[in-house]
C-alpha cells in the first residue's frame, strides 16, 4: 500500500491542470439566477445591526469550531477558520467613504463561506473535491482533496483555510462524533449538511439565537414564504452581498 488513492489523485491532478484554470474561473458567469423548483436553496441572512451591536461576541464561531473540530492554532500563518468576525470595512471594502459612519466601519461582523451560486472554487478544483450540491450548498469532500490550494486562490472571500500542520497531533478534538481533517487538505464552512438533513439550523445560527441576539437567519430562499426570503426582500433595509460585481452570486446576505 505505497500509493493511496489520495496520492494518485494528487499526481493526476497536478498533471491534468494548468495554472490557467484559476484565471478562467470568473469567465462564463451566466445571468440567470439558479434555484426554484422543489429543491431547496439554502441561504443565510446576517442582520448587521444586531451582529455589530455585540462587538465582542464569539458565540457563533465558537459553536461552529467546537462542533467541527476546527483547531485553534497559535501560529497565525496556520490559522484555520470556517466562520469568523471581521470589521465592516474588510467585509465591504469601499462601502464606507471618508465621511461615512466611521464608527460602524470598524465594528466587526460575521463572515463565512458565501455558498455562491456560481462558485469559482468549484470551477478551479482539479479533483472535484469541492462541489455545489443541488440545494446550493458548496461543500468540501476532504477525501478527494489533494491540497493544491487552487480553491484558496479562486475564492475572492478568503473563506478557505489550508492545514499546514497536523490540526490535532494529540488526537483529542472536542467533538469525537465529527471527523477532523489532516495535514494537507483544505477546509471551510459547510452550512452543516449533517444538521440540515435533520431539519436543524447550522450551529452558528443556533448559538446566535440561544444568546438572544438573533442576528443570523437560515432558510430556503427559493421558498417565497421563508423568513430568509422575506428578510432579503425587506423594503426598509439595504441588502448587500459581498463583491457582487464578480458574478459569484453569494448566498449570504447582509442587512445594513
Amino acid at each position: 500500500m505505497d500509493t493511496t488513492r489520495r496520492d494518485f489523485l494528487k499526481a493526476a491532478g497536478f498533471t491534468v491542470v494548468s495554472a490557467g484554470s484559476v484565471v478562467s474561473a470568473f469567465a462564463g458567469a451566466s445571468s440567470s439566477e439558479v434555484s426554484g423548483g422543489d429543491v431547496a436553496r439554502w441561504a443565510m441572512v446576517v442582520d448587521l445591526k444586531r451582529c455589530q451591536r455585540e462587538a465582542g461576541c464569539d458565540k457563533c464561531w465558537r459553536a461552529c469550531h467546537t462542533a467541527h473540530n476546527v483547531p485553534d492554532l497559535d501560529d497565525p500563518r496556520h490559522e484555520i477558520k470556517w466562520i469568523w468576525k471581521a470589521p465592516f470595512e474588510h467585509i465591504f471594502p469601499g462601502q464606507v467613504g471618508e465621511y461615512g459612519d466611521l464608527r460602524r466601519k470598524e465594528l466587526p461582523a460575521v463572515v463565512m463561506c458565501n455558498h455562491c451560486d456560481n462558485p469559482p472554487c468549484v470551477k478551479v478544483c482539479p479533483t472535484r473535491a469541492t462541489f455545489r450540491r443541488d440545494d446550493g450548498v458548496v461543500v468540501m469532500d476532504p477525501h478527494r482533496c489533494i491540497g493544491c490550494r487552487y480553491c484558496i486562490v479562486g475564492c475572492p472571500y478568503g473563506s478557505r483555510s489550508f492545514n499546514f500542520v497536523d490540526p490535532w497531533p494529540d488526537r483529542k478534538p472536542p467533538n469525537m462524533d465529527y471527523p477532523t481533517r489532516m495535514r494537507g487538505v483544505v477546509e471551510k464552512c459547510t452550512f452543516c449538511p449533517e444538521r440540515i438533513v435533520k431539519g436543524e439550523v447550522p450551529y452558528c445560527v443556533e448559538a446566535c439565537d440561544k444568546a438572544g441576539i438573533g442576528a443570523l437567519t437560515f432558510g430556503d430562499i427559493s421558498d417565497p414564504g421563508s423568513s430568509v426570503r422575506k428578510l432579503v426582500q425587506s423594503a426598509d433595509r439595504v441588502v448587500l452581498r459581498r463583491k457582487p460585481e464578480l458574478g459569484t452570486r453569494p448566498q449570504v446576505y447582509y442587512l445594513v
Partner: peptide, 14 residues
C-alpha cells in the same frame, strides 16, 4: 494483512 487504512488520520475514535 499489513495494511494501514489512512481513514483514522481524520476519523478520530475515543
Amino acid at each position: 494483512v499489513q495494511i494501514d487504512p489512512y481513514c483514522w488520520d481524520c476519523h478520530v475514535v475515543p
